[in-house]
């Protein structure tokens, strides 16, 4: 456990020092800070515009950070040969992979926490009467984006044990797009009574295997307040369970591949 924690801490430190990540974060923060400017332009639906825009910025920035951060983690260690100094110590490969992953998620969490803090601050300045309940409601969006990005980081981590960073960037980005866009489509196909059996089965299989990023987009009722949500707590617990299962599956896959890889 200590080995995992040590690797994770080092990974967080490395991530925070990486200029490319800081630039992405800075751009995200800049968009969050200028977001209230949109309110001046939008006399109507100003709340919806502010929240939809800022949550969108956090999600987009989070996705870019998650991919850029993770795709380089293992290939860089191999390329710089620093991996040998780690693996020659009593550190197992699975501990190395887990340490790297938790480090990446930790760094991602810190960056998303910063953006969420700025979002809440901006919102409080714009709406001084907003209570803690309202702020908590808004913060719920970024919390689930963080879980969504943790899955994305696991996807990128899994690819990073066998693919080069550039290939991994497009692969992970593609999986994110497909998992966000096509999960509902495959679900619809799987439920379509008019389709042939094999097509439905294929759709069900793809829907089951693909990471379903779409279901972490829970911002709609935050933006359009007043919507009644059914079984809300159960749904959130389910989302957490899904993330744990999916991440566990990906990390085990990554460990098994990494174990067999010549390094």
């Amino acid at each position: 456990m200590n080995a995992i924690l040590s690797i994770a801490k080092t990974t967080i430190g490395e991530a925070i020092r990486r200029k490319v990540l800081l630039i992405i974060l800075l751009i995200g923060v800049l968009f969050l800070v200028i977001a209230p400017g949109l309110n001046v332009l939008s006399a109507r639906s100003s709340f919806a515009v502010l929240i939809s825009f800022t949550l969108g910025v956090i999600q987009l920035t989070g996705a870019v950070i998650a991919i850029v951060l993770t795709v380089y983690l293992i290939p860089n260690e191999i390329e710089r040969r620093t991996i040998y100094t780690i693996l020659c110590k009593p550190v197992h490969r699975w501990q190395f992979v887990l340490g790297k992953y938790f480090g990446a998620v930790g760094a991602l969490g810190l960056m998303m926490l910063l953006m969420t803090g700025i979002l809440l601050l901006v919102f409080k300045i714009m709406q001084p009467t907003a209570t803690f309940d309202v702020l908590g409601e808004i913060a719920r969006g970024p919390v689930f984006f963080f879980i969504q990005m943790s899955i994305l980081a696991a996807v990128a981590m899994c690819f990073s044990v066998f693919a080069s960073p550039i290939v991994n960037f497009f692969l992970s980005g593609g999986v994110f797009m497909v998992g966000t866009l096509f999960s509902p489509v495959f679900q619809d196909l799987a439920n379509n009574q008019n389709l042939a059996g094999p097509v439905k089965m294929a759709a069900t299989a793809i829907h089951t295997i693909l990471p379903n990023f779409a279901q972490y987009n829970i911002q709609n009722p935050i933006i359009n307040q007043g919507v009644t949500i059914q079984s809300e707590q159960l749904y959130y617990v389910g989302l957490l369970g899904y993330a744990v299962m999916y991440i566990a599956g990906l990390l085990i896959g990554a460990i098994l591949i990494f174990d067999r890889r010549e390094v």
Binding site: N220, L234, G238, Y242
Partner: peptide
């Protein structure tokens, strides 16, 4: 989860 998401959040 998916039906719940479609009903409440989509």
């Amino acid at each position: 989860l998916f039906p719940l998401w479609e009903k409440n959040f989509s």
